[in-house]
Computed example of a mutant assay.
Amino acid sequence: MQNVNLYQRERRQQGGPRPRQLLLGACVLALALASHAAWQGWNLKQRASDRQLAEAQAVSAEAQLAAFKANYREPTLDTRLPAQLAEREAENRQLQRLATHLRALDGQLRSGFAPVLTALADRHPPRGLWLTRIRLQAGGSDMLLRGLSQDQELLPLYLESLGRSKTLQGREFGSFDLQRDDSGLLAFRLASRAAEEGDDE
């Protein structure tokens, strides 16, 4: 018969970290805390530097603003400006009128004297009045007409007929002379400007 010993001494298992692992973990934690503290310190230092820079910029801006306010002068309206503006506007209107007149003269010079002569021929009465002299200058804008009329009533009708012509319409005459000559005819002189010495030469 064999004896079986059923009683065995139970061994207790050792658990938990070993001292070496605890030391290593403590070193890692201390290193992490030191790194975090260094980063926080650098961050705080950087923020303090930024704040000092911002404060310096604010002080400089306030100094510039104070200097600008000290040198600022409220603008005042020059009393001469309205008169100068009115003078310039008058000059501009005069230049516009001159430009319009020059364009009209240019158009007349380009077209020549033919339209004016054609209008004079078309409006000439069949009898009792005739032209003895026609002078056209400045593209036809300066015109002188000299002639004779047998009847004093023909001349107003002739002038009215000239005024209805499209070419001569709106033309202004600055001089009109009417005299009876030795033969009993009415001698007339019609000019676009007042008579001057040497006009009929």
Results as ranks from 00 to 15, higher is better:
192 S>Y: 01
27 C>G: 13
50 D>Y: 03
195 A>S: 13
122 D>G: 02
183 S>M: 13
50 D>A: 06
121 A>D: 03
85 L>N: 05
29 L>R: 13
173 F>D: 03
22 L>I: 07
178 L>I: 14
45 K>L: 08
131 L>I: 02
128 G>Y: 05
78 D>V: 04
20 R>C: 11
99 A>Q: 15
8 Q>E: 09
135 R>S: 15
40 Q>W: 08
151 D>K: 05
104 A>D: 06
163 G>P: 10
52 Q>C: 07
133 R>N: 01
80 R>Q: 12
28 V>P: 07
156 P>W: 04
171 R>N: 09
59 V>Q: 14
42 W>T: 13
199 D>T: 02
13 Q>L: 12
73 R>T: 10
142 D>F: 06
188 F>Q: 04
109 L>Y: 10
79 T>R: 11
27 C>P: 07
192 S>G: 00
62 E>T: 02
1 M>I: 09
114 A>T: 06
29 L>A: 13
131 L>D: 00
120 L>V: 01
199 D>H: 09
179 Q>K: 08
194 A>F: 05
68 F>R: 12
184 G>L: 03
57 Q>D: 14
145 L>F: 01
126 P>W: 04
164 R>F: 05
105 L>Q: 04
156 P>C: 06
129 L>M: 03
44 L>A: 13
19 P>V: 07
179 Q>I: 06
176 F>A: 03
86 A>K: 08
194 A>W: 08
153 E>D: 11
176 F>I: 08
59 V>Y: 11
94 Q>W: 12
119 A>W: 01
68 F>T: 10
34 A>V: 00
80 R>I: 00
143 M>W: 00
149 S>T: 14
116 V>S: 00
198 G>W: 01
103 R>P: 01
23 L>T: 09
72 Y>M: 02
22 L>Y: 01
65 L>I: 07
144 L>D: 01
85 L>T: 10
130 W>V: 01
61 A>W: 10
103 R>W: 10
102 L>S: 07
115 P>I: 02
169 Q>N: 13
171 R>M: 11
125 P>T: 01
21 Q>V: 09
95 L>R: 10
147 G>W: 00
48 A>M: 05
93 R>I: 12
45 K>P: 09
79 T>P: 14
84 Q>C: 07
201 E>F: 07
110 R>P: 01
117 L>N: 05
182 D>T: 13
